[in-house]
C-alpha cells in the first residue's frame, strides 16, 4: 500500500446534482508514467484536483504518499508537482522571478532555478517578462515550476497543449528522466495519439467513469479491434478465390484483419508473391473511439 505513490479507492465527486467522478479506483507506482485520457468534462481535472487535495471526494478515499492530500500536510505538498490547465502567470514578472517565487514557497534554493530554466529551454528568455512569452514558453515555465524540488508525484493537466512537435518531444524526454528518478507521473490529455510510446499505462475516462485502465496491449484487447495485415503482391492481378479473405486497397495493397495470435501463422503462410508486409495495430485514437461507442456519453459532467 505504502509503496504506491497515489491510491484512489471508490472515489466519487458530486457537484450539485452532477457526478463529475463516479466510483474510480486507480493507483500510481513510483517511476510510472500514466496517461489520463478523456474528452472535456470526462472528470480528468476533478480527479487531479482530488489528488492535490483541492477538492475532497464525496465518497471514497484518496491517498498521496500515504496521506490524505486534503489535510494539506506540508511534506506531501512539498513532494508534489502540479501543472494546471490553462495556466496564466503574472505578465509583468520575468520568467526567473516567477520561478523564484514558487521556489521560495516550496523552500527550494533559488540558485538552482537557472538549471531548471535551461532544462525546459527557457534559459535565454529567463529575464524577459512572461507577458512577452509565447504559449509554448508559458507552458514550459509551468513545467519548470512543477519540477521544483524533484517531486515524487507529478500531476500534469493537459501539459502539451501549445507545444510544437519538437518541444513536445523534449517535454517527454524530461518526463522520461524524471521517471528514471522514481517520480510517478500522471498526465491528462485528449490528444491520445501523442501518448503512444510515451506512457506505461493509459486510463480512459468518460462521464466521470473509468472505462479502461492498462498498457497499450491491455487496451487493445479490451477495445476488441483486431490488428490488420497489409501485403503487396508482385503481380497486381488478384485471384478472388485464393485471396477471398483479403480486401483490395488503393495502391495495390491487400488487407485482412485477424487475432493477434494469428498474425505469425498468417505471415508464415504467405506465398512468395508477397513483396511487402505491414502489421497495422489499432491506434490509441481508434481504441478511444471504440471505448466511447461502447460506453456512450450519458451527459456532460462539469469541470
Amino acid at each position: 500500500m505504502t509503496d504506491r505513490t497515489i491510491v484512489m479507492q471508490g472515489v466519487s465527486r458530486r457537484f450539485g446534482k452532477l457526478w463529475a467522478v463516479r466510483g474510480v479506483d486507480l493507483a500510481l507506482q513510483p517511476g510510472e508514467c500514466v496517461g489520463l485520457v478523456g474528452h472535456n468534462g470526462a472528470g480528468k481535472s476533478t480527479l487531479i484536483k482530488m489528488m492535490l487535495g483541492l477538492l475532497r471526494p464525496t465518497e471514497g478515499t484518496v491517498r498521496v504518499l500515504g496521506e490524505d492530500p486534503a489535510d494539506g500536510k506540508a511534506a506531501v505538498r512539498q513532494a508534489l508537482g502540479y501543472l494546471p490547465e490553462n495556466l496564466a502567470f503574472q505578465p509583468g514578472m520575468t520568467g526567473a522571478e516567477t520561478l523564484a517565487f514558487y521556489a521560495r514557497l516550496k523552500r527550494q534554493a533559488v540558485r538552482r532555478n537557472a538549471d531548471l530554466l535551461d532544462r525546459v529551454g527557457l534559459g535565454a528568455a529567463a529575464r524577459r517578462r512572461v507577458g512577452t512569452y509565447s504559449k509554448g514558453m508559458r507552458q514550459r515555465l509551468g513545467l519548470a515550476q512543477a519540477l521544483l524540488g524533484a517531486p515524487r508525484a507529478l500531476l500534469l493537466d493537459e501539459p502539451t497543449t501549445g507545444l510544437d512537435p519538437a518541444l513536445r518531444q523534449s517535454f517527454y524526454a524530461i518526463l522520461h528522466e524524471l521517471r528514471g528518478e522514481g517520480a510517478a507521473i500522471l498526465l491528462s490529455t485528449h490528444a491520445l495519439a501523442e501518448l503512444e510510446g510515451e506512457v506505461d499505462r493509459v486510463i480512459v475516462m468518460n462521464s466521470g467513469h473509468k472505462l479502461a485502465d492498462g498498457d497499450i496491449q491491455v487496451l487493445r484487447g479490451l477495445s476488441g479491434i483486431r490488428p490488420r495485415l497489409r501485403i503487396r503482391l508482385a503481380q497486381p492481378f488478384v485471384d478472388p478465390v485464393r485471396w477471398q479473405r483479403w480486401r483490395t486497397l488503393p495502391g495495390g495493397l491487400l488487407e485482412t484483419s485477424c487475432h493477434e495470435a494469428d498474425i505469425l501463422p498468417l505471415l508464415r503462410a504467405l506465398p512468395d508473391e508477397a513483396t511487402d508486409v505491414e502489421v497495422v495495430r489499432p491506434s490509441l485514437d481508434e481504441m478511444y473511439a471504440t471505448f466511447l461507442q461502447t460506453h456512450p456519453t450519458c451527459g456532460e459532467a462539469p469541470l
Partner: peptide, 14 residues
C-alpha cells in the same frame, strides 16, 4: 479564474 490559485494551493501554503 486564471488557474494560479489552484497552483498556489498545491504548494505548501494554507
Amino acid at each position: 479564474d486564471r488557474g494560479t490559485m489552484a497552483l498556489l494551493l498545491a504548494y505548501p501554503v494554507t
